[in-house]
Design a protein around this nucleic acid. Sequence first.
DNA 1: ACCCCTACCTGCTAGC
DNA 2: TGCTAGCAGGTAGGGG
Length: 286
Amino acid sequence: MPELPEVETTRAGLAPHCVGRRVSDVIVHNGRLRWPVPEHLADVLTGRLVQRIERRGKYLLLYCLDEVSAHVGVLMVHLGMSGSLRLVDPGSVRKTHDHLVFSLSDAADDLDAEPRWELRYHDPRRFGCCLWLELPAEQHPLLASLGPEPLTDAFTDTHLFRLSRGKSMPIKSFLMDSQVVVGVGNIYANEALFEVGIHPLREAGRISEKRYVALSVAVRAILANAIAQGGTTLRDFVNGQGEPGYFQQQLSVYGRAGEPCLRCQKPLTEVRLSARSTVFCTRCQR
DNA sequence: ACCCCTACCTGCTAGC
DNA sequence: TGCTAGCAGGTAGGGG
């Protein structure tokens, strides 16, 4: 399930193959995603050059230039729970749940020429989205209220502590709130809290600044490490080239309920928090 | 304002 | 064997 490291892995994998290329065709096989794929997407996107691919939280932003008008718009993609973007040979068989197909050609190619690559959006559960944004992208309602990027200077050591004052919700819910900080989903929230020994149900407003600094450091380290491993593949995550990630081999608590704590050997406990699997050690996390 | 709950969706597994 | 129920969870929006 794509969290920030998986989305970043996808971005980094696609960028070298997509930037500078032309979208020569767009086919929407099933536009019923979390929000309907805009009817005019193919019209507005076809013929444009991919300028760059950025990421904001778990959203991928493909900046696309219309050379004639010099207009730049953004294809915004969210992978939801089960989505992936893969670059494949144009001739390869389309899989079930390949909902959108973007044909890519070399920038110098004629638009009528056979495409050289295909970028396919695959999403069995259709929790993701593909939307068209006008600049400035950050003012779009889905992006405007997002918290800082955890791997930039915007995520300071004191950010979590300051925002948490007066909050009675459990620290895990607080950490997973995208308005607090983006990109920390269920897996990495479980892992970060284990790393620093904080009980996931502890009231967010009653945690010391010192512990929040340690948590901030842990969040950065875990996300950076997961990116370095190519992300976490639990069921079906694959990067832009269809390859899995390897971070799941380093998970300390997620998916290990009942198994011994890696620090004290006591069996890990699992509870439900807002219907999310929450795994922790009652001895090491207080 | 704050916080919890629900809906969205399909593939997979467990249980009968 | 074949059905059904339950689970997985990112996110926005509704309700208390």
